[in-house]
Amino acid sequence: MINIKKREELDIKIDKTVGKPFINDAKFSTRNVDVFYGEKQAIFDANIDIGKNQIIAMIGPSGCGKSTFLRCLNRMNDTIQDCHISGDIKLDDEDIYQRQQDPVLLRARVGMVFQKPNPFPKSIYDNVAYGAKLHGLAGSKIELDELVEKSLTRAGLFKEVKDSLHKPGTGLSGGQQQRLCIARTIAIDPEVILMDEPTSALDPIATAVIEELMISLSKKYTIAIVTHSMQQAARVSQRTAYFHLGYLVEVNDTNTVFTNPEHQLTENYITGRFG
């Protein structure tokens, strides 16, 4: 248990998550979540609520488990062999890990945007129409056209690509590709969007565009974002969760976390003493 050793070295105790991990009107609520990769435990007893139509930012040093935690929320970890999860994760008060839950349908409700833009090697149009076709969201070609246009518009991409809808999505710039991935995700009209470091492969201008997009999307969707940039967390999120070596150390309003952190580890991280 190398993690525990490191924790003792730091000589700072993590008993339970400090701050305000629980809220009313939660979209997601997780209780006692442990995640294992084979023998190695990646998440220790994570308890947190994620509020409806809010952006929650998850920050912490590399390898702290924030991406792993995010991938629990849409059961993407199911695709990794020998990854085990215990505890309760509830979406709208329904356990998403219960036996009768179909992970495929869950992922249609909980969309995900990845660190590296990963458009399919298809046309821009087909990228956005992909999920809609899978789930039968559009009855006719006209409806599908409308859906594609609407999704690209909401992702702030339509003006740039409206004359090249049938060119490959892989030909776009990095920032455009990431917005295409967001358009593709919102085309299936999910309730929650998970974003795993969505701007870490982008330049500052493209990052600013995506951040604005996140804020406007949060009116309709619940968004959970993993980020390495504390400025980004401060700019876009209402609440912030700090992970450290698999432990959820502190959760609170973003303002409070950045101005008045409760836990010593959080303070060390946000003041740049390590991380």
Binding site: T79, V104, R107, G111, F114, Y130, C181, T185
Partner: peptide, 24 residues
């Protein structure tokens, strides 16, 4: 990343294979 992208859209394994992996 192609598979992840497709699974995250709520595609099943065979849909992912048929529509993303085989064409690629």
């Amino acid at each position: 990343a192609m598979r992840d992208g497709s699974y995250a859209m709520g595609a099943t394994k065979s849909e992912t294979i048929k529509q993303v992996i085989i064409p690629a």
